[in-house]
């Protein structure tokens, strides 16, 4: 079960949300601990810089805490928080100076999956994979925000189409069309290399 789906059925989380909405900072802190990793990686996928991802994900939690009285105990915490986080990230990306800097660093936020590493891999193969990482990083950083977001949630957060649609509050068809456009752009970048 995915983290998002799990949070829907987690009665413990509903209690934490209820307490947090009444101003219980300890409960809010527990919610932060539960979701901080997802939040950080979601921000990293969107802005592509570890320092900025940490800063933005914490800033989003701080804003969420300020508006905790608006939390609905009947609904999961993460999608509510994610709406704040993505708005912050998109505003951050719209700053031209930030965007240029992130483009310059494209790919540095991606790592090779060690599970996919072959032992005793030939150096040429390793170089090819490092090249691919750079190309993928650059292509991702140039995607429109909506496409990049969907691709990151699908590929790196391993979310299903339905889960992405629920998180972003868009139809499943839109998720698939954005994913298709993003993968085509990625395929074009790989073909051109």
């Amino acid at each position: 079960m995915s983290r998002l789906a799990a949070s829907y059925v987690d009665a413990g989380e509903a209690m934490l949300v209820e307490r947090a909405s009444r101003g219980d900072n300890t409960a809010f802190g527990e919610l932060v601990r539960r979701h901080m990793r997802s939040a950080y990686f979601a921000a990293l996928g969107l802005v592509g810089s570890p320092d900025d991802a940490l800063d933005l994900s914490q800033d989003a939690f701080a804003r969420a805490l300020k508006h905790a009285s608006k939390l609905d105990p009947g609904r999961p915490f993460y999608p509510w928080y994610y709406a704040i986080l993505r708005r912050l990230c998109f505003n951050f990306l719209r700053d031209r100076k930030n965007r240029q800097r992130l483009l310059d660093e494209s790919g540095a936020w991606l790592a090779e999956d060690l599970a996919a590493d072959g032992l005793g891999e030939h150096p040429d193969a390793r170089l090819r994979r490092e090249d691919a990482r750079r190309i993928v990083g650059r292509a991702l950083s140039r995607l429109p925000e909506g496409q990049r977001e969907v691709l990151v949630l699908r590929e790196f957060e391993d979310m299903k189409y339905r889960e992405i649609a629920e998180l972003l509050e868009i139809p499943v068809g839109t998720v698939m069309s954005r994913l298709y456009a993003a993968r085509r752009a990625l395929a074009d970048a790989l073909e051109e290399s």
Binding site: F41, L44, E112, D113, F156
Partner: peptide, 9 residues
């Protein structure tokens, strides 16, 4: 290409 990658921890 994307399957062989992950977000840096």
């Amino acid at each position: 290409a994307t399957m062989g990658m992950k977000l840096r921890h």
